[in-house]
Nucleic acid binder design. Sequence first.
RNA 1: UGGGGCGUAGCCAAGCGGCAAGGCAGGGGCCUUUGGAGCCUCCAUUCGUAGGUUCGAAUCCUACCGCCCCAGCCA
Length: 563
Amino acid sequence: MDTQNASSSEKSDFVRDIVAADLREGRISEVVTRFPPEPNGYLHIGHAKSICLNFGIAAEFSGRCHLRFDDTNPVKEEQEYIDAIEADVRWLGFDWGEYLFYASDNFEQLYEWATYLIREGKAYVDDLSAEEIREYRGTLTEPGKASPWRDRSPEENLDLFARMRSGEFPNGSRVLRAKIDMASGNINFRDPVIYRILHSAHPRTGDAWCIYPSYDFAHGQSDAIEGITHSICTLEFQDHRPLYDWFIENLPVPSTPHQYEFARLNLTHTVLSKRVLLRLVKDGFVHGWDDPRMPTLTGIQRRGFPAEGVREFAGMIGVARADSVVEIEMLEHAVRGVLNRTALRRFAVLDPIKVTIDNYPEGQTEEMDVTNNPEDPSAGTRKVPFSRELWIERDDFMEDPPKKFFRLSPGREVRLRSAYFVTCNEVVKDAEGNVIELRCTYDPATRGGAAPDDRKPKATLHWLSAAHAVPAEVRLYDHLFASPFPGSDGRDLFEDLNPASETVLSGCLVEPALEEAAVGETVQFERLGYFCVDPDSTSGAPVFNRTLTLKDSWARMQAKTNA
RNA sequence: UGGGGCGUAGCCAAGCGGCAAGGCAGGGGCCUUUGGAGCCUCCAUUCGUAGGUUCGAAUCCUACCGCCCCAGCCA
């Protein structure tokens, strides 16, 4: 029973099953995985799935996971991205230790192996142009045909390849191709390009090279050099696996890694395409890679999602081979789960309305003891000042309330959390008839929020003492895209952007404890949601990003009756 | 019409010949000094479809249907 319970709480999926079997049956003695980002953009939540898989497996099976940059295309790659990727993987909570690699570390070895292939008669320099190569490749249903340069001698190929390296030829003039099978049903076998001429500086190797290996020629060989046992990638590389294996078999590589593919993550109401994310940033649809609406790890972090929530989410969704789109609510559920356990509770009023307690002594202030986190007694309590003039949330009052509205209204008594019961006696309006102030009385016997006669108001409100409240800016965030499937049914992706994805509120008020809140800290504004201190905050002028709302059954009820 | 994959609830996903896990979402209820959280409970007589094998099929076989990926000198 115990072992059953223990094993059922372990993560299990087809990749872990394969690793476990390989270990059990002695095909490997230690599992070695790798996370191989190309430094041409920022990491997003989809990468988090892969990171959690690769680092997670290594940890669970006492192996190791390498961080390797797949930096074989200098025209798209930048040091900025390398730095950001390292920071994001660390933020997610993973450590590659000494195992930091770059495909570019292997450029010399890769070059040597390319010449090996040439000497074996398994690679050749092709003078065809890019367009000609495409034409010669054939189509999905028709075989390709041989390039006229396919049968050059190894000597000539070696000479040409060396001259490609030395910079003698312009971009696009020649490529090195593996000589495999122009008639293969798998297009990756139709003499794939393995080296191209790119007179372009590389973030790491500078101008040492003007020819660069393609992904197919670099990835598996880098795996072999590092001793990777399980090279885990996404489904679109399935067709490349035979080619991956071909290079491993035809080259004198030091180990025999294997590739396994899983379905990449898709999420509703957002998009996980580096191309589109780049465009959102470059065209100003968002404020940057770290915009709290972005699905990038840096954006998610600024939004206030804890790394633990992201990891929990990765565990929830599993790993399989079927294409899927996960509802973003699952991510939000995981995030709320950790925030509920860890976030300190605070009072904040986003849309204030004045409350005056007529029978409370003018000039008096009390320090009320308020629980920091009812889920975690060890978080203790804090003092929140209470006085005669208060702010409450405008939404928490209705002059003419519908049946199920339990909050404040004329003649009704509610509890001010951890303070007193108050009753609304009078509604003050301006010339236009807008409610501008509520005149209330309090019951001194209910100090702390409990009545000696045990009567229980149907609602508990959050509040702020007017004299002590700190002004703040609060940014409300919602899904980046209004449609769950952006760009579906032929719509332009950008038409589906949610116009209400960001709402900036000024004139919000927060309790004094928040005046000097630490950037990056996420707290719960009681009854409103989770909010994260934004780096735009300055001393005494905090800025908060709404991470997520609390689940709101009142709002749900409203929506249902309105529908 | 070539090659490679995938179809289990609204969504994700276990299941590996013995009678459909779990989570998210949703419904109902309890509880509550957050209309939060928590707790209880309901939610697939059926696994893309049709045949077949078997005492027994989501699991094996056959055919069909649907969806995804591949024709970068991107990864």
